[in-house]
Design a binder for these strands. Structure first.
Lengths: 123, 123
DNA sequence: CTTGCATCTCACATTGATGTCAGGTTTTAG
DNA sequence: CTAAAACCTGACATCAATGTGAGATGCAAG
């Protein structure tokens, strides 16, 4: 498929797909005229990339993780594996922080609601 | 306390504290010479702001939430309350995504480890 | 063949929080 | 009183992903 279709099917902009390629995260074959062509597999790949972006990883970091996904049996993926475990931990920590923040919000919301209802009852 | 101490005690840079004030998130009293002075309470306030930043909220959004924290009994905090509930939900969704991503990473890590150990045993 | 839509490259703009530098003023310690 | 350290404002830099626009080319359908 061409880039437009991949964009449509992943929900990622054409611009971003080209950027991913520029960063070495995504590879395409070129038609005679120079247009990018992708396979079905690339959809999953883009989804994965997106997920990591959402998780706050930089394209540089994602690049370091890719060998682990592409060639798990490759010798030099040992460092990628270590890197991935490290990022997993970072993510875990981040999730914990977010849960804490959510608790804070819940506390504020509950307090505000109670206060509001109190006022309403009093009025 | 002055800005340097607040920075030291919150782990937020002096530059950022000034920026928070510029965005209306933080208020300071000024000494005769124009230097900012803060109270102990401001430490919690800055911590709260930081937490929301980490949760991905923009300073604009944080500003909309502040009335709910500062004056929960204020009439016009109803909209802030609603906004806060909305952000809480957004955060929940985000956390769910991150958990999903962490699962993906766990899967890849497990696969890579299994593969590596398989190779080692075979070798 | 022609017309129109998709794609190409290249380059510059944007956003948001923060860093950094410069030149001047305030505060504090000796 | 004086020197050092902290602070002030203002402006410009940065980073990373993405938007956007121009000008040129590829490709598919009539």
């Amino acid at each position: 498929m061409r880039i437009g279709e991949l964009a449509a099917r992943t929900g990622v902009s054409v611009r971003s797909l080209r950027y991913y390629e520029e960063q070495g995260l995504l590879v395409s074959t070129r038609s005679g005229g120079g247009q990018r062509h992708y396979t079905e597999d690339d959809i999953d790949r883009v989804d994965f990339i997106q997920r990591l972006y959402v998780a706050g990883l930089s394209s540089r970091t994602i690049m370091e993780l890719m060998p682990c996904r592409d060639a798990p049996s490759d010798e030099n993926s040992d460092s990628a594996l270590e890197r991935m475990a490290q990022e997993r931990d970072r993510l875990s920590t981040h999730i914990k922080e977010l849960l804490h923040t959510r608790d804070s919000l819940d506390g504020l919301i509950a307090a505000a609601r109670a206060d509001r209802d109190g006022r309403r009852t009093a009025a």
